[in-house]
């Protein structure tokens, strides 16, 4: 069968279809949109992609994505340097930043301990953590890891590693999400919420 789009465009569609949320059909639609809006969308997108690909690297201090020597968070002197939030990946860091309530600094582990995927402590940015805590005089470490077996196993491992450092350790609360209805929660979440209940008033 003849190739209606041409080799280069097919290649672009194939690459686009690997992105999350896009399948072959939606990738084809996206590529068609780009081709129709070449000057207003495709060229700026191509330039932005080239620029990001050339400049983005992992921040040497926290592991966040950075375009300068340090990431914007590490380079910002207004951030609270006494509190460090440990997250699994950059997506979690972005989620916390989106909430806009945490003003400290971050440490990105780059994954969690996983027996299934063969990820051990040496594969994560754990070894640098005690030295960073000592160097920056951090008073509290918040373990903001997922409420999964792997996330919590990693949190407990980190708690062990940091137990002699004198730093205050805390973890995110678990329980009923905002807008959550008890009827729709899984048994584990209900159990965790009951376990973490707190007194009201007084």
């Amino acid at each position: 069968m003849a190739d209606p789009a041409g080799h280069e465009i097919d290649r672009l569609i194939e690459l686009m279809s690997r992105l999350p949320g896009l399948g072959p059909r939606s990738a084809r639609r996206a590529v068609l949109t780009l081709l129709r809006r070449r000057q207003t969308l495709m060229d700026p997108l191509a330039r932005a992609l080239a620029e990001v690909a050339a400049r983005v690297h992992d921040c040497p201090v926290c592991g966040n994505l950075a375009t300068g020597e340090l990431c914007d968070i590490c380079a910002d002197p207004r951030r609270d340097g006494s509190t460090l939030c440990v997250v699994e990946g950059v997506a979690d860091l972005w989620a916390l930043e989106r909430a806009g309530v945490f003003r400290g600094r971050y440490h990105v582990l780059g994954g969690v301990l996983s027996a299934l995927d063969g990820v051990g402590p040496e594969d994560l940015a754990i070894a640098a953590l005690p030295a960073r805590i000592a160097r920056e005089g951090i008073a509290e470490v918040i373990l903001a890891l997922n409420a999964t077996v792997e996330g919590q196993t990693t949190a407990h491992y980190l708690a062990d590693v940091l137990s002699g450092s004198g730093v205050r350790l805390s973890a995110l609360a678990r329980g009923v999400p905002i807008g959550g209805e008890l009827d729709h929660l899984d048994d584990g979440t209900i159990a965790a919420a009951l376990g973490a209940r707190r007194p009201l008033g007084g």
């Binding site: 027996a115 299934l116 409420a147 708690a159 159990a191």
Partner: peptide, 27 residues
């Protein structure tokens, strides 16, 4: 779902580690 087990052991690190070990060894 029938019985969630992990969430009930999140506050007990050795027991959670044992649960993870049982699953990993079986796999």
């Amino acid at each position: 779902p029938v019985r969630p087990r992990a969430a009930l052991l999140f506050e007990d690190p050795p027991a959670l580690a044992a649960l993870a070990s049982v699953a990993a060894l079986l796999s």
